[in-house]
Each structure stands twice: as structure tokens, then as C-alpha cells.
Amino acid sequence: MNIFRLAGDMTHLASVLVLLLKIHTIKSCAGISLKTQELFAIVFLTRYLDLFTNFISIYNTIMKLIFLGSSFSIVWYIRRHRVVRRSYDKDQDTFRHFFLMWPCLILAIFINEKFTLKEVMWTFSIYLEAIAILPQLVMLQRTRNIDNLTGQYIFLLGAYRAFYILNWIYRYFTEEHYVHWITWVAGVIQTLLYGDFFYYYFQSWKNNVKLELPA
């Protein structure tokens, strides 16, 4: 465990807590894409299949349980909660996210580190996580209004993967045989997808104006 990895996990944790806090306190999911949240729930489900079989550390297990629990409760809130679901704007959340899953699954079957069910599922979760934010970014472009909690959520989500890239660089230079091309390429693509959002987020922060994405 290095500082970049810890910072990444804490930023990731902060992002899901910001989202849960927003939905739980103001009982609204305006501007939040349910599809992205469903994809994240699938990412954790397929990535943590070895939750009970492959014990890494207490920290690892607890974090996995938190991410699984928070992602499923966010999906539940938006789909089932009698108040929150009324603020879900399904006409704006139109990204065909299940179409995204197939290329990830096919790619995971052909490009993986080991052709076993668990490994293919894990690789699928890596590819899926890289593009899971797309429905949310498309929805933001459409609705144009980004309340600051949603903006913070996306910013933290992007920052977590950026910290992971620093973690991979650090581990590459400090641990021999640490090479995970699949994770690295997917992680860089994922972080780049946040690229333009980061740009507009910093612009709005610097000029102290409300965050606006171009049409």
C-alpha cells in the first residue's frame, strides 16, 4: 500500500459518500445518471467475486463491502425510494448502457491475464469501469445544470483513478514483476474520459463561476 493508492481509495470513498449524502439528505437524484450507477454496481459485483475466497487484508475486505453496499444502495434509492425516484430524470438518462457491456465482455474474453471465469469477470469489470461514467457525462451535457455536489462527485471519481495511475507508476518502479497492462490502459482511458470535465471544472473554480459544460 502506497500513499497514491491510499489517496485513490479515500477519494473513491469520498465520491460515493458525497453521492449517498446528496441523495439521502436532499432526497433528490436530479442530474444523476441511474445508468452509470447501475454500471458501477455491476463493476463491483464482477470485480469482487473473490471477496470471500481471496483474503487480502481487513482494509481490502471492508472497502469492498463499502463499495458494494454504497453502489447498490444508490441504485436502490434512485429506482425504489418513493421520494428520490421522482427526481430521476429518465428522459435525460438515455444512454444505452447495456450496449456498452457487450464489447467489454467480448474484449474480456479475448484479452485477459488468465482465461478463468473469475479472471474474465475481473477483466470485464476493469473495462466496464473505464466507460461506466459515459452515461453520466452524456446526461450532464444534456441537462447542462451541474449542481456542485454532482460536480464534486464526478471530480472525486476522476481524481481517484488519477491517483491510481500514480500508484501503478510507483509500484512499477518499486516492485519487480509488477506489470498489469490491461489495468493500466483501461485506467488511463478512464481518466482521460474525465479530461474535458476536469478542464471545465477547473475553469469554473478558477473564475469562480457556476460550472457550465459547452453544448
Binding site: D50, N54, I56, E113
Partner: peptide
């Protein structure tokens, strides 16, 4: 063993 550390990240 290598296996158990293969996916030690979240």
C-alpha cells in the same frame, strides 16, 4: 504466493 496478490487493489 503470487496468485493471492494478483488483484490486491480495489
Amino acid at each position: 504466493p503470487k496468485g493471492s496478490r494478483s488483484h490486491d487493489e480495489l
